[in-house]
Write a protein that binds this DNA or RNA. Structure first.
Lengths: 301, 301
DNA sequence: CAAATAGTGTCTATTAGACAATATCCA
DNA sequence: TGGATATTGTCTAATAGACACTATTTG
């Protein structure tokens, strides 16, 4: 219990925790984004207020809404710190690490208990442990995971004064080095968006190619030729046509597709060292990668 | 100090350590490999003996030797456990985590103190923490790094009864889940071999295209068309001709190349969340990735 | 000279991307 | 029926790979 003085403490093993970067698709922030964008150092209150307004839009128009014309955008739930250091700043959801649970279980528990969200994808991101990262606090090692929640699940967030969604390009002031961590998670997502299962976790079960296209553009931040996109995606054999169509306006309706379940995946990523074997847990199976993790990656850069 | 009984202990935070998978290039194991290969469950003594013999070959023919005809192969140094559990088995070099050091520093210290090696590349691999992984021991979280040592540096290993090199395809029985960790590190290397700086860390300062080609084949385990390989590599602009040539036998001598130092790297990987800022440390700068880490990755799979 | 590796040429298949053109719905 | 999006066609550039060929050493 006794921690001793500073010099003694420095040679001690550090504290270890788990944090999660949660990503969901929501509507673009319209004017709101323009207002709060690039406001890393802006005052805090207006942003959170804006964010709340925007997230109400998210809840109202909602994840259930299909991304018609509106461009989609990534949203991240954060929790407000109620103690020093960084009291009042926003931070990633996190929790303790327990010896009797796997790291993934700990991450899941932290995520679930602080946000009520149920992700359908969860993967280790990186472990951060520089002594300087917890300015003012005790040295801390954070094992960080990143998670994806679908449009449907994203409504489960119980928003309050201490939990709120923020659009990826208008984040509030963040505690510790969490800003850097989020940036890294976004990089990882942008990289992994090529894996079809990743995009699947963001869009939902069934979708039009235009919607999927929108997700890719939202994640990558670049314009992607729709014609080539649809050819490439269809040629990959990952999608199957549901046979149904959906009308979304005064124009030709689009076909609905879904990701092929056990589709042949000759190319896969060697990303997780082992299968995340959680097949029967209440959570969705995010273990499609079980197979993937065993195959050598084919294209490298 | 008091750990309490089992059920109490289970809810405690786990122990945390650092381990390192060290990879170096050495000669192919010839008959030795054939003998010891696929002997995951074979008796221990012959393998270590074989390994010692082979590693003497490594030391004799040595990292200094140029890979003439002999195919190269990856070698990994391991340390023998001197306590339970897994007493007598081989394990990855590792050590404690200290709160006043970065994770990378801790990894470097663990690596250096147990093997005397000085890597010229070090990167976080993954953090392992499943409760079941330390069968018989206390629950343990291992933050694992992987390292590359060059041919020159690989001689620094002080081999003894408790430290020895093993060829990647003839590993002895390993403690804990270290076998799985090594496999994952090999996957990571095979994936990253496309990054020119990675191969550079294995071959040495100057090399012929045939040697570099050999490294790629050794790492990937596949035959690569030499003609296309040299075109591709040269076209990348990563290499520069030293102007010198080296004769290696009764045939036309080959040009010596080196990796261009601050070469333009329009394509790079988003792999490390931050720059490993160790510019002035006694270790080599493995922070070429500083730049890389900030750029979006271009090709994904 | 002849063996052996260094290095170049050429062809084909595949893929990515730009951009035009057509199809089909419904307000 | 016309506006709008869905869907298809076509062309070009870039890339990867297979494989034949030429060049240059030294024993």
């Amino acid at each position: 219990m006794g921690i001793g003085n500073v010099s003694e403490r420095r040679s001690q093993p550090p504290q270890v925790g788990v944090s999660v970067v949660i990503l969901a698709l929501g509507p673009a922030g319209d004017g709101i984004v323009a207002d709060g964008a690039d406001a890393g150092a802006a005052s805090e209150t207006p942003i959170t207020h804006i964010s709340h307004a925007a997230s109400e839009t998210l809840a109202a128009n909602g994840p259930g809404r299909d991304t018609d014309g509106a461009r989609a955008q990534l949203w991240i739930p954060l929790v407000r710190r109620v103690r020093q250091p960084f009291l009042g700043d926003w931070a990633l959801p996190g929790g303790d690490l327990r010896a009797d649970r796997s790291l993934e279980d700990s991450a899941y528990a932290a995520l679930e208990s602080t946000t009520d969200l149920h992700p359908n994808y969860l993967e280790q991101l990186y472990t951060f442990g520089d002594p300087g990262r917890s300015q003012g606090g005790l040295p801390m090692v954070s094992i960080v995971y990143w998670a994806l929640v679908g449009r449907a699940e994203s409504r489960d967030l119980a928003e309050g004064d201490n939990v709120a969604w923020f659009p990826e390009n208008a984040l509030p002031r963040l505690a510790f080095d969490h800003r850097r961590i989020i940036d890294y998670a976004l990089d990882r997502l942008r990289y992994k968006i090529e894996y079809p299962q990743i995009a699947a976790r963001l869009v939902g079960d069934e979708f039009t190619l235009a919607q999927l296209h929108g997700v890719y553009e939202a994640v990558t931040g670049r314009a992607i030729d729709l014609a080539n996109f649809r050819r490439r995606i269809l040629a990959s054999g990952e999608l199957e046509d549901t046979g149904r169509k959906i009308a979304q306006g005064r124009h030709r309706p689009a076909s609905l597709y879904r990701y092929a379940r056990a589709a042949a995946q000759p190319i896969a990523a060697a990303d997780a060292p082992q299968a995340n074997a959680h097949a029967q847990s209440p959570r969705e199976e995010w273990s499609d990668d079980a197979l993937s993790a065993l195959l050598p990656s084919a294209i490298a850069q």
